[in-house]
Protein backbone atom coordinates (compact mmCIF):
# COMPACT_ATOMS: atom_id res chain seq x y z
CA UNK A 1 0.00 0.00 0.00
CA UNK A 2 1.21 3.50 -0.81
CA UNK A 3 0.24 6.70 0.85
CA UNK A 4 1.13 8.92 -2.05
CA UNK A 5 1.99 12.18 -0.37
CA UNK A 6 2.66 13.82 -3.74
CA UNK A 7 -0.97 13.26 -4.65
CA UNK A 8 -3.03 16.14 -3.49
CA UNK A 9 -6.61 14.94 -3.46
CA UNK A 10 -8.73 12.60 -1.37
CA UNK A 11 -11.78 11.15 -3.11
CA UNK A 12 -15.03 10.24 -1.34
CA UNK A 13 -17.64 8.35 -3.35
CA UNK A 14 -21.15 8.19 -1.90
CA UNK A 15 -23.72 5.45 -2.33
CA UNK A 16 -26.84 5.57 -4.49
CA UNK A 17 -27.28 2.46 -6.63
CA UNK A 18 -27.62 3.10 -10.35
CA UNK A 19 -26.96 6.80 -9.74
CA UNK A 20 -23.33 5.72 -9.15
CA UNK A 21 -22.80 6.14 -12.92
CA UNK A 22 -22.68 9.87 -12.13
CA UNK A 23 -19.34 9.22 -10.35
CA UNK A 24 -17.91 7.59 -13.50
CA UNK A 25 -18.46 10.97 -15.18
CA UNK A 26 -16.99 12.81 -12.17
CA UNK A 27 -13.84 10.67 -12.24
CA UNK A 28 -13.50 11.09 -16.01
CA UNK A 29 -13.64 14.88 -15.60
CA UNK A 30 -11.03 14.88 -12.82
CA UNK A 31 -8.76 12.61 -14.86
CA UNK A 32 -8.95 15.13 -17.71
CA UNK A 33 -8.28 18.04 -15.34
CA UNK A 34 -5.16 16.14 -14.26
CA UNK A 35 -6.06 15.49 -10.65
CA UNK A 36 -4.19 12.73 -8.79
CA UNK A 37 -5.81 10.84 -5.97
CA UNK A 38 -3.87 9.97 -2.81
CA UNK A 39 -6.62 8.29 -0.80
CA UNK A 40 -10.12 7.03 -1.70
CA UNK A 41 -13.18 5.89 0.21
CA UNK A 42 -16.57 4.60 -0.84
CA UNK A 43 -19.93 3.59 0.49
CA UNK A 44 -22.40 1.28 -1.23
CA UNK A 45 -22.09 1.71 -5.04
CA UNK A 46 -19.38 4.28 -4.29
CA UNK A 47 -17.31 1.44 -2.78
CA UNK A 48 -17.45 -0.39 -6.12
CA UNK A 49 -16.33 2.73 -7.99
CA UNK A 50 -13.66 3.40 -5.34
CA UNK A 51 -12.35 -0.18 -5.73
CA UNK A 52 -11.66 0.56 -9.40
CA UNK A 53 -9.92 3.86 -8.55
CA UNK A 54 -7.79 2.18 -5.83
CA UNK A 55 -6.69 -0.69 -8.06
CA UNK A 56 -5.93 1.41 -11.15
CA UNK A 57 -2.49 2.79 -11.87
CA UNK A 58 -3.86 6.18 -12.95
CA UNK A 59 -7.11 8.09 -12.65
CA UNK A 60 -7.36 8.07 -16.44
CA UNK A 61 -7.19 4.27 -16.40
CA UNK A 62 -9.80 4.18 -13.62
CA UNK A 63 -12.10 6.49 -15.63
CA UNK A 64 -11.87 4.18 -18.66
CA UNK A 65 -12.51 1.05 -16.56
CA UNK A 66 -15.51 2.64 -14.84
CA UNK A 67 -16.98 3.66 -18.17
CA UNK A 68 -16.68 0.04 -19.35
CA UNK A 69 -18.23 -1.31 -16.13
CA UNK A 70 -21.18 1.07 -16.23
CA UNK A 71 -21.73 0.47 -19.93
CA UNK A 72 -21.69 -3.30 -19.33
CA UNK A 73 -24.19 -2.86 -16.48
CA UNK A 74 -26.40 -0.84 -18.81
CA UNK A 75 -26.09 -3.51 -21.54
CA UNK A 76 -27.15 -6.24 -19.07
CA UNK A 77 -30.02 -4.17 -17.75
CA UNK A 78 -33.40 -5.86 -18.40
CA UNK A 79 -35.54 -3.98 -20.86
CA UNK A 80 -38.42 -3.97 -18.49
CA UNK A 81 -38.64 -0.88 -16.39
CA UNK A 82 -39.38 -2.96 -13.32
CA UNK A 83 -37.13 -1.93 -10.49
CA UNK A 84 -37.45 -5.33 -8.92
CA UNK A 85 -35.99 -7.01 -11.98
CA UNK A 86 -33.10 -4.60 -12.08
CA UNK A 87 -32.11 -5.01 -8.43
CA UNK A 88 -30.37 -8.18 -9.62
CA UNK A 89 -27.58 -6.05 -10.94
CA UNK A 90 -26.73 -5.12 -7.35
CA UNK A 91 -26.75 -8.72 -6.18
CA UNK A 92 -23.80 -10.28 -4.37
CA UNK A 93 -22.83 -12.42 -7.29
CA UNK A 94 -23.02 -9.66 -9.84
CA UNK A 95 -20.97 -7.25 -7.71
CA UNK A 96 -18.41 -9.98 -6.99
CA UNK A 97 -18.21 -10.78 -10.70
CA UNK A 98 -17.63 -7.14 -11.59
CA UNK A 99 -14.90 -6.75 -8.97
CA UNK A 100 -13.16 -9.94 -10.05
CA UNK A 101 -13.37 -8.98 -13.72
CA UNK A 102 -12.17 -5.41 -13.41
CA UNK A 103 -10.08 -5.23 -10.23
CA UNK A 104 -6.93 -7.18 -9.49
CA UNK A 105 -6.96 -7.98 -5.76
CA UNK A 106 -3.19 -7.72 -5.56
CA UNK A 107 -3.34 -4.27 -7.16
CA UNK A 108 -4.79 -2.88 -3.91
CA UNK A 109 -1.43 -3.52 -2.23
CA UNK A 110 0.32 -1.34 -4.82
CA UNK A 111 -2.46 1.23 -5.00
CA UNK A 112 -3.60 4.11 -2.87
CA UNK A 113 -5.27 3.84 0.57
CA UNK A 114 -8.83 2.63 0.14
CA UNK A 115 -11.50 2.76 2.86
CA UNK A 116 -14.87 1.05 2.65
CA UNK A 117 -17.83 2.16 4.71
CA UNK A 118 -19.60 -0.82 6.33
CA UNK A 119 -22.52 -0.99 8.69
CA UNK A 120 -22.57 -3.65 11.41
CA UNK A 121 -25.62 -5.86 10.88
CA UNK A 122 -28.32 -5.97 13.53
CA UNK A 123 -31.30 -8.33 13.79
CA UNK A 124 -34.25 -7.71 11.47
CA UNK A 125 -36.45 -6.46 14.33
CA UNK A 126 -33.78 -4.07 15.56
CA UNK A 127 -33.32 -2.72 12.05
CA UNK A 128 -37.05 -2.24 11.59
CA UNK A 129 -37.29 -0.26 14.83
CA UNK A 130 -34.22 1.70 13.74
CA UNK A 131 -35.87 2.54 10.41
CA UNK A 132 -39.02 3.85 12.10
CA UNK A 133 -37.20 5.87 14.77
CA UNK A 134 -34.67 7.41 12.41
CA UNK A 135 -37.39 8.32 9.94
CA UNK A 136 -39.64 10.16 12.35
CA UNK A 137 -37.35 11.31 15.20
CA UNK A 138 -33.97 12.93 15.64
CA UNK A 139 -32.58 9.59 16.74
CA UNK A 140 -29.75 8.62 14.36
CA UNK A 141 -28.24 5.27 13.44
CA UNK A 142 -24.84 4.31 14.85
CA UNK A 143 -21.62 5.23 13.06
CA UNK A 144 -20.43 2.97 10.22
CA UNK A 145 -17.11 1.17 10.40
CA UNK A 146 -14.46 2.37 7.93
CA UNK A 147 -12.23 -0.52 7.00
CA UNK A 148 -8.93 0.06 5.25
CA UNK A 149 -8.95 -2.51 2.44
CA UNK A 150 -5.18 -2.89 2.47
CA UNK A 151 -5.33 -4.02 6.11
CA UNK A 152 -7.72 -6.87 5.31
CA UNK A 153 -6.86 -10.37 4.18
CA UNK A 154 -7.18 -10.70 0.36
CA UNK A 155 -10.37 -12.82 0.66
CA UNK A 156 -11.97 -10.29 3.02
CA UNK A 157 -11.28 -7.35 0.68
CA UNK A 158 -13.79 -8.55 -1.92
CA UNK A 159 -16.25 -9.40 0.86
CA UNK A 160 -15.97 -5.86 2.26
CA UNK A 161 -16.63 -4.24 -1.11
CA UNK A 162 -19.49 -6.64 -1.84
CA UNK A 163 -21.07 -6.08 1.59
CA UNK A 164 -21.03 -2.31 1.06
CA UNK A 165 -22.12 -2.36 -2.59
CA UNK A 166 -24.95 -4.93 -2.35
CA UNK A 167 -28.48 -3.80 -1.67
CA UNK A 168 -29.14 -4.10 2.04
CA UNK A 169 -32.35 -5.93 2.98
CA UNK A 170 -32.28 -7.77 -0.37
CA UNK A 171 -28.89 -9.38 -0.52
CA UNK A 172 -27.81 -9.70 3.07
CA UNK A 173 -24.38 -9.36 4.52
CA UNK A 174 -20.75 -10.50 4.69
CA UNK A 175 -18.73 -11.69 7.67
CA UNK A 176 -15.35 -9.96 8.01
CA UNK A 177 -13.00 -10.52 10.92
CA UNK A 178 -15.83 -12.16 12.81
CA UNK A 179 -18.22 -9.21 12.36
CA UNK A 180 -21.21 -9.16 10.02
CA UNK A 181 -21.48 -6.10 7.77
CA UNK A 182 -23.97 -4.66 5.31
CA UNK A 183 -24.13 -1.44 3.25
CA UNK A 184 -22.17 1.32 5.05
CA UNK A 185 -24.58 3.95 3.77
CA UNK A 186 -26.86 3.19 6.70
CA UNK A 187 -24.49 4.61 9.37
CA UNK A 188 -25.36 8.05 10.75
CA UNK A 189 -28.27 8.15 8.34
CA UNK A 190 -29.50 11.66 9.28
CA UNK A 191 -26.19 13.29 8.43
CA UNK A 192 -25.32 10.72 5.69
CA UNK A 193 -21.91 10.28 7.30
CA UNK A 194 -21.89 6.55 6.65
CA UNK A 195 -22.94 7.08 3.04
CA UNK A 196 -20.32 9.85 2.67
CA UNK A 197 -17.19 8.27 4.20
CA UNK A 198 -15.07 11.43 4.34
CA UNK A 199 -14.05 10.77 7.96
CA UNK A 200 -11.29 8.19 7.33
CA UNK A 201 -9.71 9.91 4.30
CA UNK A 202 -9.56 13.29 6.01
CA UNK A 203 -8.05 11.69 9.12
CA UNK A 204 -5.55 9.83 6.96
CA UNK A 205 -4.65 12.76 4.73
CA UNK A 206 -5.76 15.99 6.41
CA UNK A 207 -3.56 18.32 4.37
CA UNK A 208 -5.06 17.27 1.07
CA UNK A 209 -8.14 18.70 -0.58
CA UNK A 210 -11.03 16.26 -0.41
CA UNK A 211 -13.40 15.74 -3.33
CA UNK A 212 -16.84 14.43 -2.33
CA UNK A 213 -18.93 13.03 -5.16
CA UNK A 214 -22.54 12.99 -3.92
CA UNK A 215 -25.41 11.24 -5.64
CA UNK A 216 -28.09 13.10 -3.67
CA UNK A 217 -28.38 16.77 -4.60
CA UNK A 218 -29.71 17.66 -1.14
CA UNK A 219 -27.55 15.30 0.91
CA UNK A 220 -27.62 16.52 4.51
CA UNK A 221 -23.90 15.72 4.82
CA UNK A 222 -22.28 18.83 6.23
CA UNK A 223 -18.89 20.01 4.96
CA UNK A 224 -18.62 22.37 7.92
CA UNK A 225 -18.09 19.41 10.25
CA UNK A 226 -14.54 19.40 8.83
CA UNK A 227 -13.45 23.00 9.34
CA UNK A 228 -9.74 22.31 8.91
CA UNK A 229 -10.03 20.62 5.53
CA UNK A 230 -10.58 21.97 2.06
CA UNK A 231 -13.53 20.15 0.56
CA UNK A 232 -14.91 20.27 -2.96
CA UNK A 233 -18.42 18.84 -3.18
CA UNK A 234 -19.74 17.69 -6.52
CA UNK A 235 -23.52 17.54 -6.23
CA UNK A 236 -25.85 16.62 -9.08
CA UNK A 237 -27.64 19.65 -10.48
CA UNK A 238 -30.46 18.95 -11.41
CA UNK A 239 -31.18 16.03 -9.00
CA UNK A 240 -30.47 12.60 -10.51
CA UNK A 241 -33.49 10.79 -9.08
CA UNK A 242 -37.11 11.73 -9.17
CA UNK A 243 -38.12 8.90 -6.82
CA UNK A 244 -36.68 5.99 -4.88
CA UNK A 245 -36.91 3.55 -7.82
CA UNK A 246 -34.35 5.49 -9.86
CA UNK A 247 -31.53 3.99 -7.82
CA UNK A 248 -32.38 0.61 -9.39
CA UNK A 249 -32.77 1.96 -12.92
CA UNK A 250 -29.77 0.73 -14.92
CA UNK A 251 -31.27 1.38 -18.34
CA UNK A 252 -28.77 2.53 -20.89
CA UNK A 253 -30.27 5.98 -21.38
CA UNK A 254 -30.21 6.70 -17.67
CA UNK A 255 -26.66 5.42 -17.17
CA UNK A 256 -25.39 7.50 -20.10
CA UNK A 257 -27.26 10.52 -18.82
CA UNK A 258 -25.83 10.13 -15.27
CA UNK A 259 -22.28 9.75 -16.57
CA UNK A 260 -22.66 12.76 -18.80
CA UNK A 261 -24.14 14.84 -15.96
CA UNK A 262 -21.33 13.79 -13.61
CA UNK A 263 -18.80 14.99 -16.15
CA UNK A 264 -20.62 18.31 -16.81
CA UNK A 265 -21.33 19.08 -13.15
CA UNK A 266 -17.68 18.47 -12.24
CA UNK A 267 -16.33 20.60 -15.05
CA UNK A 268 -18.69 23.45 -14.16
CA UNK A 269 -17.82 23.31 -10.46
CA UNK A 270 -14.08 23.12 -11.07
CA UNK A 271 -14.17 25.82 -13.76
CA UNK A 272 -15.90 28.20 -11.35
CA UNK A 273 -13.33 27.55 -8.64
CA UNK A 274 -10.41 27.79 -11.08
CA UNK A 275 -11.72 31.02 -12.63
CA UNK A 276 -12.11 32.63 -9.24
CA UNK A 277 -8.67 31.45 -8.13
CA UNK A 278 -7.07 32.62 -11.36
CA UNK A 279 -8.64 36.05 -10.98
CA UNK A 280 -7.34 36.37 -7.44
CA UNK A 281 -3.92 35.02 -8.42
CA UNK A 282 -3.79 37.53 -11.26
CA UNK A 283 -4.70 40.28 -8.83
CA UNK A 284 -1.99 39.02 -6.47
CA UNK A 285 0.61 38.98 -9.22
CA UNK A 286 -0.33 42.49 -10.39
CA UNK A 287 -0.18 43.71 -6.81
CA UNK A 288 3.20 42.04 -6.22
CA UNK A 289 4.52 43.58 -9.43
CA UNK A 290 3.22 46.96 -8.31
CA UNK A 291 5.08 46.64 -5.01
CA UNK A 292 8.23 45.50 -6.82
CA UNK A 293 8.08 48.52 -9.16
CA UNK A 294 7.45 50.82 -6.23
CA UNK A 295 10.47 49.40 -4.39
CA UNK A 296 12.73 49.78 -7.43
CA UNK A 297 11.50 53.28 -8.10
CA UNK A 298 11.90 54.22 -4.46
CA UNK A 299 15.47 52.97 -4.49
CA UNK A 300 16.22 54.81 -7.77
CA UNK A 301 14.64 57.96 -6.41
CA UNK A 302 16.84 57.79 -3.30
CA UNK A 303 19.94 57.29 -5.46
CA UNK A 304 19.03 60.30 -7.63
CA UNK A 305 18.29 62.28 -4.47
CA UNK A 306 21.73 61.44 -3.02
CA UNK A 307 23.46 62.25 -6.29
CA UNK A 308 21.64 65.59 -6.48
CA UNK A 309 22.60 66.37 -2.89
CA UNK A 310 26.25 65.74 -3.78
CA UNK A 311 25.92 68.06 -6.78
CA UNK A 312 24.26 70.72 -4.64
CA UNK A 313 27.07 70.45 -2.05
CA UNK A 314 29.60 70.69 -4.87
CA UNK A 315 27.98 73.90 -6.10
CA UNK A 316 28.14 75.42 -2.63
CA UNK A 317 31.81 74.57 -2.17
Amino acid sequence: MKNRSDKNYNLVLCGGGALGAFQAGVIKAFSEIGVSIGCVSGASIGALNAAVVASSSTLKHAANTLESIWMSLAEKSPDASSAVLQTGLLSKNNIKRIICNFCDNSAFDKGISFYVSLYPKESSITRFVELITTSFTDEDTPESDYLLIQELAPEDRIKAIVASACLPWFYGSEKINGKIYTDGGQGRFHSRKGNTPAEPVIKNNRESTTIVAHLESDSPWNRFDYTDSTIIEIRPIPPLSKDFTDIFDFTKNKILSYMSQGYDNTMKTMTKIADFMNSLNYLDSVFSKQIEISKELNSSSLKVENAMQKIKNLKRT
Binding site: S217, I231, I232, E233, I237, T269, I273, F276
Partner: peptide, 14 residues
Protein backbone atom coordinates in the same frame (compact mmCIF):
# COMPACT_ATOMS: atom_id res chain seq x y z
CA UNK B 1 -11.88 30.35 -2.13
CA UNK B 2 -13.05 26.75 -2.53
CA UNK B 3 -15.53 27.15 0.36
CA UNK B 4 -16.87 30.37 -1.14
CA UNK B 5 -17.48 29.02 -4.61
CA UNK B 6 -18.40 25.47 -3.64
CA UNK B 7 -20.77 26.27 -0.77
CA UNK B 8 -22.80 28.50 -3.10
CA UNK B 9 -22.91 25.57 -5.52
CA UNK B 10 -24.03 23.19 -2.76
CA UNK B 11 -26.73 25.62 -1.64
CA UNK B 12 -27.91 25.89 -5.23
CA UNK B 13 -28.21 22.09 -5.60
CA UNK B 14 -30.24 21.85 -2.37
Amino acid sequence: IVDLVNSINVAKST
